[in-house]
Amino acid sequence: MKEFAEYISDGIVQCKIVRKDSGKIDIVAIYANKQSEAITGRPVEEILNKGMTEVYPVIVDSIFNWPQILSEAAMTSDHKIIEQYVTGIEKYVRFSIFGFKDDTFYLAMQDLTEQKQAKKLQLEKNREIKFLENELKSRANVDPLTKLYNFQFINECIKSSVTNYKEEGINFCLITIDIDDFKKINLLFGMQKADIMLQDVAKILSSNARKIDVVGRYGNDKFTIILNNVDLDIAKIMMERIKMEIENYSLNYESKLSICCSIVEYEGETIEQFIERSESLLKKAQSIGKGIILS
């Protein structure tokens, strides 16, 4: 083995098992090739004929009893591979243990530290990419101010509800809500307070929606709710409750906050016709006055 050891890239050390009077085992290097220096961190002459615990006293207090581990592996197996981070060497090493005879055996050592670090870095990058993908997906579906679903996602949900209606006969209603005098609110209180008001309205809508419903921001001061598996009468009751809660919301100015809204039940028309029916009914409600619900 020794005649070939200088021609291979692995660090090769021939070890002798030494049993101390205390009963503990140590291993002494009786041969080491030049390549072993890069892994052991010591010149060959500094490790020859010395016990492992003498060269690396830090391993005495390590949770890994390396002289014991390596010796038992040599004595109980023709060829054993152990991969582990080794304190003292401060490297992640692959030990190939073989050739046990007369209390001596060979260690072939490979430094896997960079390889393990590269895997860790790749894992970190993969997790970062996954996080960014999830973040982008979230931003693609959610309005950043109100945290409600955005216009694009609402349209996809309407399509899904239409499919459920056609395939399973599941009714659904679309509520479109517009805040009365929102431009005036912006002028009187400024954009920052107006944004807070939009966020509060969004919370009211979300708190009144069921898990199967979809709540979204449909425009600047316009919101929408898709009420799944309900008919028009139930939708009216739910909307009246929401309207009362919004009207009781305190904006700290002279008049109460009010909304106009339309409620339409899907009747099998095209999606474009359905949305247009909702928009037209909302405009009619606004033309009548403040706080009007039409269905």
Results as ranks from 00 to 15, higher is better:
residue 139 R to E: 13
residue 79 H to E: 13
residue 200 D to F: 02
residue 236 K to E: 13
residue 119 K to Q: 10
residue 287 S to D: 10
residue 183 K to P: 03
residue 294 L to G: 03
residue 180 D to N: 14
residue 95 F to E: 06
residue 37 E to Q: 04
residue 219 G to N: 06
residue 1 M to T: 12
residue 287 S to M: 11
residue 293 I to L: 15
residue 134 N to R: 12
residue 198 L to M: 12
residue 232 L to F: 04
residue 128 E to M: 11
residue 157 C to I: 01
residue 16 K to T: 08
residue 244 M to Y: 09
residue 234 I to W: 00
residue 205 L to M: 05
residue 236 K to N: 12
residue 11 G to K: 05
residue 192 Q to K: 14
residue 139 R to T: 01
residue 82 I to T: 07
residue 13 V to M: 06
residue 242 I to H: 00
residue 187 L to Q: 15
residue 160 S to R: 15
residue 264 V to M: 04
residue 224 T to W: 01
residue 260 C to Y: 00
residue 12 I to P: 03
residue 174 L to Q: 03
residue 129 I to F: 02
residue 105 F to Y: 09
residue 35 Q to M: 09
residue 290 K to S: 13
residue 250 S to M: 07
residue 213 D to I: 08
residue 226 I to E: 01
residue 10 D to C: 03
residue 11 G to H: 03
residue 123 L to C: 01
residue 205 L to Y: 05
residue 280 S to V: 11
residue 125 K to R: 09
residue 166 K to N: 15
residue 7 Y to I: 05
residue 149 Y to C: 05
residue 4 F to S: 06
residue 229 N to S: 14
residue 24 K to W: 09
residue 37 E to P: 03
residue 34 K to V: 06
residue 282 L to S: 06
residue 65 N to P: 03
residue 43 P to E: 06
residue 62 S to M: 02
residue 140 A to K: 09
residue 62 S to I: 05
residue 291 G to A: 06
residue 104 T to V: 03
residue 284 K to Q: 14
residue 133 E to G: 00
residue 134 N to V: 05
residue 152 Q to D: 10
residue 25 I to P: 08
residue 13 V to N: 01
residue 11 G to W: 04
residue 261 C to V: 02
residue 209 A to Q: 07
residue 133 E to L: 13
residue 263 I to R: 04
residue 129 I to D: 07
residue 6 E to K: 14
residue 250 S to Y: 13
residue 203 K to L: 15
residue 199 Q to P: 02
residue 38 A to S: 13
residue 234 I to V: 06
residue 152 Q to V: 11
residue 161 S to W: 00
residue 41 G to F: 07
residue 255 S to L: 09
residue 183 K to T: 12
residue 165 Y to D: 01
residue 200 D to H: 12
residue 270 T to Y: 07
residue 23 G to V: 10
residue 155 N to L: 14
residue 270 T to K: 12
residue 207 S to E: 11
residue 11 G to V: 02
